[in-house]
Each structure stands twice: as C-alpha cells, then as structure tokens.
Design a protein around this nucleic acid. Sequence first.
RNA 1: GCGCGAAUAGCUCAGCGGUAGAGCAUCUCGUUUACACCGAGGCGGCCGGGGGUUCGAAUCCCUCUUCGCGCACCA
Length: 916
Amino acid sequence: MAAEISKGYQPGTVETQWYGRWVDAGCFRGDENGVREAYSIVIPPPNVTGILHLGHVLNNTIQDILARRARMEGKDVLWLPGTDHAGIATQSKVEQKLRKEENKTRRDYGREEFLDKVWEWKEEHGGIIIEQLKRLGCSCDWSRERFTMDEDYSRWVSKVFVDLFNEGLIYRGKRMVNWCPKSLTALSDEEVVMKPQKSKLYTMRYRVAGEDDRWIEIATTRPETLMGDTGVAVNPKDARYGDLVGKTAIRPFPEAEIPIVADEHIDPEFGTGVLKVTPAHDKADFAIGLKNGLEIIDVLNPDGTLNAHAGPEFEGMDRFKARVAAAEKLEAMGQLVKVENYENKVGFSERADVPIEPRISMQWFLKYPCVEEAAAAVANDEIRFRPDRWKKTYAHWMDGIQDWCISRQLWWGHQIPVWYRKDKAEALQNRESLGASEAGADLHVGIEPPEDADEWVRDPDVLDTWFSSWLWPFATMSNSDEEPSATERKFYPTTDLVTAPEIIFFWVARMIMAGYRWRGEPPFRNVYFTGIVRDGSGRKMSKSLGNSPDPLDIIADYGADALRFAIMKTAPLGADIRFEIANEGGKEIYPQVVEGRNFANKLWNAARLRQMQDDAATTGAAAPKLDPEALSIYAIDILAKLDDTERKIAQAYEDYRFNELALLLYEFWWSQNCDWYLESAKGDLFEEGHPEGDPARKAATLATMDTVLKRFLLLLHPFMPHITEELWDNLGYRDPDGPEFLMNTPLPRDSVLAGFDPKTVAAARKKVKAVYEAVSRARNLKAEYGLGANRNVSFIIDPEGGTFTETAVFKRLCGAGEVVVQPGFQAEKGVPAALTAIGKIHLPLEGLVDVDAEKQRLEKELAKAEGELKKVNHKLANENFVTRAPDEVVAEIRERKGHWQERVGELQGMVENLGG
RNA sequence: GCGCGAAUAGCUCAGCGGUAGAGCAUCUCGUUUACACCGAGGCGGCCGGGGGUUCGAAUCCCUCUUCGCGCACCA
C-alpha cells in the first residue's frame, strides 16, 4: 500500500502520469483479432489546425465515456481518431500567415511550393488538438490515427470520384453556384449561412420603350447589378402591368432595351410588384431568365469587383461601393424614386464570413447515391438517432436533396482525378456539360494519372473537404484497392457516432449514403447528437465572440476529470449546455467545474478515511469478503443502494442519458455514502461503545467500505478516469492475477447483494430509513433552537414498539450528548418533540426555551399539518378518486391521512400545554 | 412563411400523470480522529399566460406570449 495520501486531491501530475501509463501499456488499442463483442466509434475528425474548445470537450468526453464503459463491459473496443485537412480553413490560415509575414500570396509561390508550405505548417501545428484530446483523457487508439490526406485515404477519395463519374452521378456543368469572393471558390449550399442584414430597399424607375413618359417602378436591394439586367418581370395575373408584357423597358446604364416578361414567381404584393431580372447574379433570376430566354450578362469579377460589362465608370469598383455609386447615378438621372431601410437575409460564406455571390460557373456536381436506402435506414430506426427529433430534419433534407457542388477553386485538398489531353483541354473545360460518355481518348478519369502524363493537364480544382469526410468510417479502416481489412471486418459498421447536429447534412447524411454505396452497410448503428455549448447569456461559444474559455486552462486549474464531470452533469440528451462563467475577485471561475473538482476531492477524502484505517485489514482489499451475518443494517442498506445505483446506471447507459449518469454517481457517493453511511459507520470503525473493541464489526465495516469504494470506482471511471485509476492503485484494489489497470478491469457481473436474504435486506432498509428520518427530525429540532453546536443536548425517545437499539448511531448522526430510551416517557409542558417511525423524540431544554418562540414554531407546524390533513381529506372525500384511482395510491393516501391526524392531535396538545 | 426546441427557487438545471427536487448563491449554527474544495439546518416556487382531458396535471392535449435553432428563390 502506498504512503498516506495527501489531504486534498491534486489532479495535475496524477492525470498526466496515468495517461502516459495507459498509452505505454497499449490499453487503448483496438484488437482486430479479438473474439469478444465489438464496440467501435470513429471520432468526428477535428480540423487538423484546430484548437480544442468546449464543444470538443463535450463531444469527446461522451465518446470516451462510451468507449471506457464498453471496455469495462468486456467488449473489444476501437475508438479511431484522426484529423481532417479542412480545405478552406487550413488554406486560408496559411495564406494569411504568408500575407502577414512575407506579404505574398499563394500565387507568388505557385501550387507546388505553396502546398509544401501548407504541409510544413500542418506538421508544425497539426498535432496540437490531438495532444489536447490526450490531456482530456481520451482513450483513442492512437496507433490508428488517420488524416484525410494520408496517401491511402486519398486513393479512396479518387476511387470514389471515379466510381461515381463512371456511373454518371458526377458531372461537370455550368450552373448557378454560391461563390465566395474572398476565398475565390464555389461553395456548397451547406456552407452558406443566412444572416439578417440591415440594408436598403431602393425603388427606381425604368422607362417603357416606345411610350412617352411611361415609367415602371422597380424595387431592389442590389442596384449595383442592374447593369446585368436583361429583363423586367411582372406577375401575369397582376392587372396593373398586364399590358406591359411583351414590351420592352430601357435599362438606364449601360442603356439597352430589355424585355418585359411575365412570370408566376413574382409576388405582386412585394415592393412594386416588378422584378428586375439579373440572370447572372441571382438564383431565381437565373431560372426566370432561362424560362424566358433572357441574355446572361455577368458584371462581376470573381473577387466581387465589377467588370467591363458594368461600364467604364464602374469597372474595378467593389460591389458594395458600386451599390452606392449606382444609386447615386440613378438619382442624378432622376430615376431613383425612394430609398427605404429594409431588413433582409443575405447568404454569407461560413468560413470567410463575407456575403456570397450567386454566380454562374463551371463546376463539378454530384447526384447523391443510395439516397433511398439512406433515408429509409433512419426512418425505420436501423440507424437510431438520439434524440429522435432529428429524424424529421434528416428526412426533410433527404427529401429535397439537391446535387452537391463538389469542386473547389483551392489548392489544399484532394485534386480532382481528371485529366484533359493538352490540345483538347480548353475545349473540354468549356463544354457546357461533361459526363461519363465523354471519357476516352481526350478525357481521363482515374485513380492513377494517364501513362503519358506529359501529354495531359490535370483539372486544377480540388474536392470539397466533405467529399473526403463522408468516407471516414470505412476509409480509415481499409484500403480502397484491397479486401476489407481485419480491422474493418471486426469493427465496421461502427456502433455509435457522437456529433453535433449542425453537421447532420454536411457529414452524417452523406456518410450514411457512402456507407451503403461502398460497403453495403450503414456506417453506424446509433447517432448521438450533442447540444451546443453556450455561455451564460445563451450565446454560442466561439472564438470570434471571445466568450470561450480555453479548456486547457480549465484543466490546468481544476483537472480534466473535473471538467469532464462538469460538462456531463449539465448535458441532457441533445439539449444545449449553458457553461457558466462567474467572476470572483477579477478571476473567472466556472461554478460547474468547481462542483466537479469538489466531487473529486470528496471522493479522494472518503478514500483517505478508508486508507487511514489499519493496514492489516487493507491487505484483503482487493477481494473484500462480505459476511451477511456480520454486517450492520447500515452496511446492508448502503450495499442495497449501491445495487440500485448500478441498475439505474446500466439503464441510463442504454438510454444515453449522460447527465442522469453523472447525477446518479454524484448523489450516491456524496449523499448516500458519505453523508449517511460513512457517518453511521464511524462508530464501528472507531470501535465506539466497545471498550474492548469489536474486531469483527470493524472488519465487516472495512469490507463494506472496500466493496462500495471498489465498485464505485469502476462505475465512475468512464467519467473521471484519472482519479479513479489513482485511487484504485493507492488503495491496493488491483487483483494480483487480474488486469493491470482499473480501466481494463471488467465490471462485476453479479449483484453486490448476491447471497443475501432478500427479507433481511428489506428489513434492514426499512429500519435504516426510519433511523435516518428520525435523525433528520432530531436535527431539525436542534437547529430550531440554535443548538447545532451543542453536543450535550439530550434526546429522550419514547420508542415505537417499546424498544430502540440504534442509540449509538442515532446519537452520532444527530450530534447529541446523550440519548435516553424511555418507553412511555411523559414530557413536561413545552418540551419540543417529534413523532417519527422509531417513536417520539423529545428534546428537553430545561428552561432554555423561549416559550413564545416555541409556541410560534408549534403553531406554524400545526398550520402546516392541518393544511396537509385538509388536502388529504379532500382527496379521500372525492368518491371518484376512491373508486377510480389505483388501490396502492388510495392506500398511500389513507396512510398519510392517519399520519397527519395523529400529528395534528399531538401538536394541538403541545400548543395547549404551552398556553397554560 | 413552414418546421423543431426551450420557458420550474436569485442563477444553472433535473423531474415529464399520484405529497415540487439538486448544485450554486444567500442566511443561521458548527472545526467532533476523511474532507471548510467540509458538515447540520433555514429562506426561497400561482412549475411563462389562458383553456381543456383526468378522481388527480409541472407532467397529456389545444392556444397564446417570449427566447433559441433549422428550412424556404421574396427582389
């Protein structure tokens, strides 16, 4: 047994030491050849350049809990970690750095050299988040760590592209896409976030051609695109404008006649009921233009400035400056009618945080495979969503699923595996559409480049990051050109996926489709959607808001176990988490984490109490023997509560209710064990009342403490892995012939009450309950008179049934100087008393009591009791209740009635006594 | 506009048909051989408003209000 442990728990070195030992011993390795039931999770790969935030803490703590619990349930567990190359995010970080440090752009370096720089940067900073996950205690199989741009993984990405291209699901075409003028790339619909904006609604007027002084008023938020207007549209049912359809209007600049067309899409109620149609710069306008055969004039450059089509005075001007300039010009021409403030929603690039431009451009698109299977799998619970309300969101998206724009005009990522023969490249790339039928002598689509590579040029675009992420569950396990690996055969489909609902479309839905398409099986059985971590005022924690504390700082101050426990205790199934930040003397403190730290300390000290007892008894700690005959009723009671807790915990794991798990663990330990059992056991421990000692009682107590502590450490370990492992070691609980660590010690299969007579257990529990309740009443009495500190008060008990044997424990628990058992005791006037299941407890105060105060107190209690009695009587007077409510409920109410009747009578008597 | 959440003690949240709960904060008392990162006790709730179902509603249904989040081509 180790030296005496310190008074307070110091998590720092304890945590890192144990983590190192687990890794060194290979505890986290998933055994692909294991014969036990498989349990697997693939980590949602964080961005390789990412920094741990509280969202990661939540997410990965849940995964770690599931993985550790599964190990202790005797399963072969694989938690497969890795990182994502995160195309735009990583590339922009490196570009930013180059601009800042060298004032250079990626084009100054050229593709090859720039990519070298990114790899360099990745090698330097890429490991940070992995190290942070280790500090949190995550039991990932680091020997299997993967990166989405690993060579094998990249082959998978190419293979998938080639498969889908050959099937005709991937095609290239000129389409309206979301264009990010900052990152200079196309984005998928999912990468666009709509934000409400305070903008202006400009009403301008165009002259109707051929009609003197007839004007048509048009409302727009984007006057800067009017140079690209190629039509004006009205609703065909709109009587105001019916006669205009078929005529033309004069676009003010550059001046041109543009047709007035009719289209159902126009809402006559909005603005003036007239829409300017700019097919090159608006999705809806594009559709209207297509229907009506309007010209497409693109007036914007990729970077968001205006181009030559806008006219010389606007060329090169930024789109937002041009907006003002165009309005001014209209005004100067007398064609600006009015400007109003207006709030609308504008699509922003999620990454670059600038308004996106709808833009027609040549991109690669994917028609999703296996949509029906993927939709059905979730609908029929083959893949179970928790909470299941996300099923609806998923179904809705799957139902209206749109082709996925998968090409990105970036350099960092998986370059598209398409080559064009040099002399045909330009022609091919300008084709309006390109698909499987065009592959051949001039178009090569393959995992490997064409043999005479010099004769070909490769498509410069890379694939959307999610085009690699969606393969994560299996591409991390097997190579694309081999049979499924042993790892995959053992661990795929994975068991649980833990992720944020924000990426249900980005990732979850797509993984399901990919799983069916390339593996014929769903990638996972359960999806647990976490909530979002918010700050005290409900805002999402984010770096840009600066409201997210660094988890590593919290870990340094409170310990990883405390943080884990804190976050789990406040994480109800799929609901958001409010992470409290309080300010104390200028320092930020985190009340929830303080609670976690205090809990660790409480556990630590309860273990100390055990450890401070003699060593001789501790030698048997690894296998404590419980002799039902020798145990006190309190010991039996705590064992029964432990048994209850174990069962509730098993159920809560079934239901993925992590906050309930945390609560069960906390309540059992602190309240049931520490506050009640351990206090009641101290007499036996210190051999009180047995001057000659009672070694058998003491041994039984130590065996109980060991049993409870041992089993509790096993239960708590997934939540607080470090401290539990430390205590397991300190207390010598390791079975010399068993596993080296607590973390790979299986949970006991048998109930702790196996071999106990259920009747004895029930009797003990009933008795203990009565004693504890009586103690509470007695403490109340004491506190009423400010006698908390006075240990010399005497309680006189008139016992129920004539005897009471638990005086020693009673006395200790309510801190009394003396407890006298006196059947039939008649108290003098004014002696406070409480009626309990063990009998009537009197607290003689020998004149110390203020009679008025006592009378007031009694009257208050009497009023309360009368209220209760009234409620109960009312209930029982209700015939419907008596005839229709379940028997046990009625019986309970009757019992309650009896109790309150007695209590009222008693209190009335006492008040009367006092009054005399 | 449609859909989905949430509203319970001063704060953070449990409870989701059968006497309103925890932690923190606050107040009173207390260092008794695990722990002051502690112990004992108290104060504090028309369980967002209004209707309904039921013997009985914080809990189920309807409706409204407020907040949050998705989805949608309203210029």
